[in-house]
């Protein structure tokens, strides 16, 4: 079971998480006790500079986004990485005075863990905002699908098809890119299956609307049946898009909690 739910986050955090985990084990087993830690000024300064750059770019991202949840959730992550960076700087200064300092070792572990945790919070917050972008497109399609109910002429149908096409293409592209990003195989498959169903149902819906329009204009029988058929296809498509929206919001942790 993957710990990180996207490949990007996994590729960034997995290696450093393993390193820190190993360091913690060494610390707990007393392997670092009684040993002098050398001058860490250079690697700590590199972390400090990287934190400063990340927070600067992060703040720019928060300023430019219209996503209110990201504006709210991102700043605590900045504080977490900045505080952790300060701990590392303090540890480095303490070790300069005493390479055997025990509190300095604790600060190093706390600081490293804090950087990992803060970076994880930041990346997850950003990823959630990216998911919300995809969901907005999906909801736009859901909304436009309901317009099918007011299509009564062939002209309307042409306009409807023309308007629906680009949105569908955009949603399909976004879902394809997202499923490739996910580390959880089941979630990937669920997105692919639902998107394929939506794509298969699109011409069926257009055809159902066409039959409804033709039946209605000929003033013969079968209008009710055509309407039922149109509604059935519309409801099936809506259900699949709602399923896509649900799966997009799942993370590996949801699955773990459920298990």
């Amino acid at each position: 079971m993957p710990v990180f739910h996207t490949k990007t986050i996994e590729s960034i955090l997995e290696p450093v998480a393993q390193q820190i985990s190993h360091l913690v084990i060494m610390h707990e087993e007393g392997e670092v006790d009684g040993k002098a830690i050398p001058d860490l000024t250079v690697p700590v300064a590199a972390v400090q500079a990287a934190v400063s750059n990340l927070v600067r770019v992060g703040k720019e991202t928060v300023q430019t986004t219209e996503d209110q949840l990201m504006k709210r959730d991102m700043p605590p992550a900045f504080i977490k990485v900045e505080n952790s960076s300060s701990k590392l700087v303090q540890a480095s200064q303490m070790l300069k005075a005493d390479p055997y300092s025990v509190p300095a070792r604790d600060y190093l572990i706390d600081g490293s863990r804090g950087i990992l945790s803060g970076t994880s919070d930041l990346l997850l917050t950003f990823d959630e905002a990216e998911v919300r972008k995809i969901i907005r497109v999906c909801k736009g399609i859901l909304e436009y699908l309901t317009v099918a109910e007011v299509v009564e002429t062939m002209e309307d149908l042409i306009t409807y098809t023309k308007n629906l096409g680009p949105g569908m293409t955009k949603m399909s592209k976004m879902i394809e890119e997202r499923q490739q990003e996910l580390t959880h195989q089941e979630h990937r498959q669920m997105l692919v299956n639902s998107m394929n169903t939506v794509k298969e149902l699109l011409p069926v819906l257009i055809s159902a609307i066409k039959i409804f329009v033709t039946t209605k204009s000929s003033r013969g029988g079968g209008t009710e049946e055509a309407e039922r058929n149109r509604r059935f296809t519309f409801e099936k498509m809506s259900a699949e898009i709602n399923e896509i929206i649900r799966v997009l919001q799942l993370t590996t942790w949801d699955e773990d909690a459920w298990a």
Partner: peptide, 29 residues
């Protein structure tokens, strides 16, 4: 800015990894 933020996060993770390595290498050595 979003992509740049992800790039900077990657740089920070690498710098943290290097730091942890430096601490560990000494302990192992």
């Amino acid at each position: 800015p979003g992509r740049e933020m992800v790039r900077q996060a990657r740089i920070l993770a690498q710098a943290t990894s290097d730091l942890v390595n430096a601490i560990k290498m000494d302990a192992e050595g």
